[in-house]
Amino acid sequence: MTISRGHTAPSPDAAAGHAAVGPSSWRAAWWPRIRRWAVPALGVLVFGLLVSHAHKVDWSGAWQSLQRTPLPVLAAVLGLSVASHALYGSFDLLGRRHTRHGLPVWRTWAIAVASYAFNLNLGSLVGGVALRARLYARAGLDEATVAQVVGMSMATNWLGYGVLAGALFAAGVIEPPQQARIGEHGFRLLGAAMLGLAAAYLVACRACQGRSWRLRGRPLRLPSARTAMLQMALSAANWALMGLAMSLLLGDKVGYGTALGVLMAAAVVGVVTPIPAGLGVLEAVYLGLLSGTLGQGRVMGAVLAYRALYYLLPLGWGLVLYALLERHASVHPAAETSDAGGTPPA
């Protein structure tokens, strides 16, 4: 008598067990732990590097430069910082108009401004993405709508950057910092590529008008060419305000175009060196490009004042806005509002 030993199909529980130990499940289980330790480790590494180079900086000269800065100049820079942060809030209003979600204008603007303050000081993943996603989710927006709003805000920011920086780099207004390891010719090509990408975005928005794709069951479409031009104009104005603030702090010896160009170069280095608040990036780039003209003390004084007035002080009102938004969300829990309508299409 022959006994047949066939293969029995695995039970659903067994199949689920095998699936649970797959690569995606492993990443889901271990990535939060890795991230929890990697971020502090990076912070310690950066802090150690800053400490090791701190003795090379003329800190006494920097403090004297801060003391010599007239109060009207500091007040003007603070006003420009407030205007810049307020203008950044309009980026999410463009996303509101494009996605037609039903959140009030004031709440959308407040979420953007609070997130921007955290973004500058804690990095884009914390402020630009995580915090903004939480506040929008608490307000009742679904994931697909939040992704479109966040993506459009980021695109707006870098479109204006591409237009201004592309023009400055391509024209050779500013030489690249040594830290970027890119020659002058490469910097000019980078500027031309930025202008080309901005132009390609406009063409794509024009060509794809009326077309849509699906993202998790939600329609996804490019904005109109008119909205794309508004994105570039608002963002370019925002970067211009930042450059003007830095130009006032640096004084008459550095022209506005040079001050703006150095700020753009620092932003490039900051992107490829993802350190929260660009810690040490602004200082390194400005010292490398302008210390020969103004001296370390003057440059460090201007950068420290800029960091205090554009980064640190706005974090205070960002914390206040965040607390108010969280309180409002707790008192007024909202249902999903992504399809509430009432807003004209982009």
Rank of each mutant, 00 (worst) to 15 (best):
A259E: 05
L304T: 11
A267T: 10
G251R: 06
Y256V: 10
G292E: 00
L304M: 08
G288H: 01
A305T: 09
M264N: 05
M246W: 04
M246T: 12
L249Q: 06
L282K: 15
G280V: 08
L290R: 04
G292H: 01
Q231P: 11
G301K: 03
G288N: 05
I275M: 05
L248I: 09
S291L: 03
G255C: 05
R307K: 03
V272Q: 04
L241A: 01
N238T: 10
V272L: 03
V269Y: 07
M242H: 14
S247K: 05
G257H: 14
A237I: 07
G301R: 07
A233D: 02
V272S: 10
R298V: 05
L260Q: 04
V281M: 00
A240C: 04
V268W: 09
T258R: 08
A225H: 04
L244W: 00
V271I: 12
M300L: 12
A225S: 09
L282N: 12
N238G: 10
A308S: 02
L282T: 13
L248Y: 01
G261M: 06
M246P: 14
A245T: 09
M264R: 04
M232D: 05
M229H: 12
A237Y: 02
A266Q: 13
T227L: 13
G270L: 03
A233S: 05
I275R: 11
G243I: 07
M264W: 00
L304V: 12
W239P: 12
Y311G: 13
L230P: 13
V299M: 11
G257T: 15
V271D: 01
P276G: 09
G278Y: 02
R307W: 00
L263R: 14
M246R: 08
L312T: 15
L304A: 04
L282R: 14
A266V: 15
L312C: 15
A305R: 10
M264E: 04
L289K: 09
V272N: 02
T227G: 11
G278M: 01
G255P: 14
S235W: 00
A259C: 06
S235V: 07
G301Q: 06
G297P: 12
A236F: 00
V285L: 00
V268G: 11
Y286D: 09
G292D: 05
G280L: 03
M242Q: 15
E283R: 09
G292C: 00
L241F: 07
A277L: 05
M229K: 13
S291T: 10
L234N: 01
L263D: 13
L244F: 05
V285T: 08
L234W: 00
L289H: 06
S291F: 06
E283K: 06
M242W: 14
Y310I: 15
G261Y: 01
L309I: 07
